[in-house]
Simulated assay, not measured.
Amino acid sequence: MQTITEETKKKVVKLHIQDGRTIASLAAEYGICHATVSNWIRAYREECQTNDAAKSENELMQEVRQLQRKLAEAEKENDFLKKAAAFFAKEID
């Protein structure tokens, strides 16, 4: 049985909350039981209820995730507009 450090636990929780990684993918990547990862996430969320520093960190991670989604959507829209502009530029010539 491998020993999991606190640093690894925090990293796994952060990957789930901030990056949106699934519990299953994290469990597989780190060789940890699905239930264990789920318990870490639940414990962190409970800690956020009583610990202002953890709550603030959690809010920042969620904001980063939201901004990443918005950026990805804006990049898709930008790519679409570039393709449309190129298409219409060919039509004009």
Score class of each variant (00 low, 15 high):
residue 1 M to G: 14
residue 3 T to W: 07
residue 6 E to D: 13
residue 6 E to M: 03
residue 9 K to A: 01
residue 11 K to H: 13
residue 12 V to P: 09
residue 13 V to K: 11
residue 13 V to F: 05
residue 14 K to R: 15
residue 16 H to L: 01
residue 16 H to I: 04
residue 16 H to G: 04
residue 17 I to A: 08
residue 18 Q to D: 09
residue 20 G to P: 05
residue 22 T to K: 03
residue 22 T to Y: 07
residue 23 I to T: 12
residue 25 S to Y: 13
residue 28 A to K: 14
residue 29 E to G: 02
residue 29 E to F: 11
residue 30 Y to G: 05
residue 32 I to T: 03
residue 32 I to H: 12
residue 33 C to H: 11
residue 33 C to F: 07
residue 34 H to M: 07
residue 35 A to G: 06
residue 39 N to A: 14
residue 40 W to H: 11
residue 40 W to A: 04
residue 41 I to E: 08
residue 42 R to V: 08
residue 45 R to E: 12
residue 45 R to P: 01
residue 47 E to N: 15
residue 48 C to Q: 11
residue 52 D to E: 14
residue 54 A to T: 04
residue 55 K to R: 15
residue 55 K to I: 00
residue 57 E to C: 03
residue 59 E to L: 12
residue 63 E to D: 01
residue 65 R to C: 02
residue 67 L to V: 03
residue 68 Q to V: 02
residue 71 L to R: 12
residue 74 A to R: 12
residue 74 A to S: 11
residue 75 E to S: 05
residue 75 E to N: 06
residue 75 E to K: 14
residue 79 D to T: 05
residue 83 K to A: 08
residue 84 A to W: 02
residue 85 A to Y: 13
residue 86 A to C: 05
residue 86 A to K: 13
residue 87 F to A: 12
residue 91 E to D: 05
residue 92 I to N: 10
residue 93 D to F: 06
